[in-house]
Design a protein around this nucleic acid. Sequence first.
DNA 1: CGTCAATGGTCTGAAGTCGGACCATTGGGT
DNA 2: ACCCAATGGTCCGACTTCAGACCATTGACG
Lengths: 259, 259
Amino acid sequence: MGSVRRYDSGVDVDVTREQARLDWETGTIFRPIRTGNAFEETVERLLQAIKLGVFGPGDRLPAERDLAARLGVSRETLREALRTLQQADCVAPRRGRYGGTFVTYRMPEPDVADLRRAARDLGGALEDALTYRQVLEVGAAEAAARRPLSPEQRAHLEDRLTELDAAPAEQYRQLDSRFHLAIGELTGSPSLAAAIAEARMRLNDLLNAIPMLDRNIEHAAEQHRAMVRAILDGDGDAARRATEEHLAATASLLRGFLA
Amino acid sequence: MGSVRRYDSGVDVDVTREQARLDWETGTIFRPIRTGNAFEETVERLLQAIKLGVFGPGDRLPAERDLAARLGVSRETLREALRTLQQADCVAPRRGRYGGTFVTYRMPEPDVADLRRAARDLGGALEDALTYRQVLEVGAAEAAARRPLSPEQRAHLEDRLTELDAAPAEQYRQLDSRFHLAIGELTGSPSLAAAIAEARMRLNDLLNAIPMLDRNIEHAAEQHRAMVRAILDGDGDAARRATEEHLAATASLLRGFLA
DNA sequence: CGTCAATGGTCTGAAGTCGGACCATTGGGT
DNA sequence: ACCCAATGGTCCGACTTCAGACCATTGACG
């Protein structure tokens, strides 16, 4: 300790502490540029779009050429991904005009064993994802509330809530995702909406595996209403508090099943 | 309006509204998988590591083999990126043992003309980035405050503040970045820290181009102290408020120069 | 004064990815 | 009954990226 070196900047620094700082920061800034190859990431995205409920069973995905362009990937790579999903019985292609790629995926029944396995796979990334999601969604709710919303936007949010309240049990998770995603989109910040979608994707397998009890659903519904009310009222503080409470409840429910 | 169709799910939906929802959500979920090729992203990362001040003038970057592994990129791609930076006089390689790639980049003088140009280049992405940053950093400060911190972590945070207070004008921006990044790292969530780094990178050229007046620096220093105090005290609400205030001040300073 | 280990510099063959052209199929429209 | 536009299916040549091996250089250390 206390070893000191003079740099060409003319500033004396403690070499040991400086090294510790560097080790720490390089890990953050020099993280991997790409998590996998284009093909794998494409599969992941498509699967998550389906699991998040953006496309339900029977829905048609955008045409290959269009989808490839949206994903910024060549059509061939996209097709390879679609072929994989097809073999996993998630989608089925239909040729000809008015054809397309149609979703055949059905949500599996929630299963606590699945949940534990999924949590083990995530490992330390679980706490990371929960913190990440908390910060993003709480912040988004507040940001959405503090923003002037168009009548269309207000209607859209209420639609999501109504849809969710009327959801049959097997669609609940997907419509819940739609609702939370909608709040992210209301912030008007594409980056924020994308980050929320990503965070939710990471937790999605876990959330999907939680058995939904009527009592939990009712509780969640109340919290959802509080969030919507606060956002439509433009009350940022209330929106933040309501979202905080809702996410804390979900997180502790999750931890409960893992304990 | 009111056109209704029955899907195989047996649920009647308003086709017009359903289409609007799809258009909206597909934009979020089917955003591009990769923003550019590996080479471009590598250049960007390196440049940002330097501009954010993780590596100052004269510092040595990690060895090529090591750096390539950290970035998840082949050594050849990394070298191509380094060659580009070399041609831009940002780094210089030195061969032999104890050699390496050394940073030669010097911060340009702040210039309002640069700032306006950079803002124009960003376009609508500016508001996006500001919102994104606000949510992330405010949330991170609160999360860090609500978390038990080790003595090393507390010392690290205080080091960053001390370092920043003692900063010569030409290093101020870089040390400011280090300080804000440190808060993200204190949350213990790598995803959150990475997102903060990314958000800051997007605004970096803008922030760097703001002429720093003594009055602003003093004001910022006060806010920084309040943030640190709140985080070390474990006072989440205070941390959030202090960060909110600080970022609002920076944002309005920025908008002022753009107006 | 030589050794040698760590570093940047160079090359190659394989695999991944891309853009684009062209084919095959289908069902609504004329 | 035919046409044709939109869709999935197939293929190819060019470019990018990769993994790994090998070379060249340097300076601290014995």
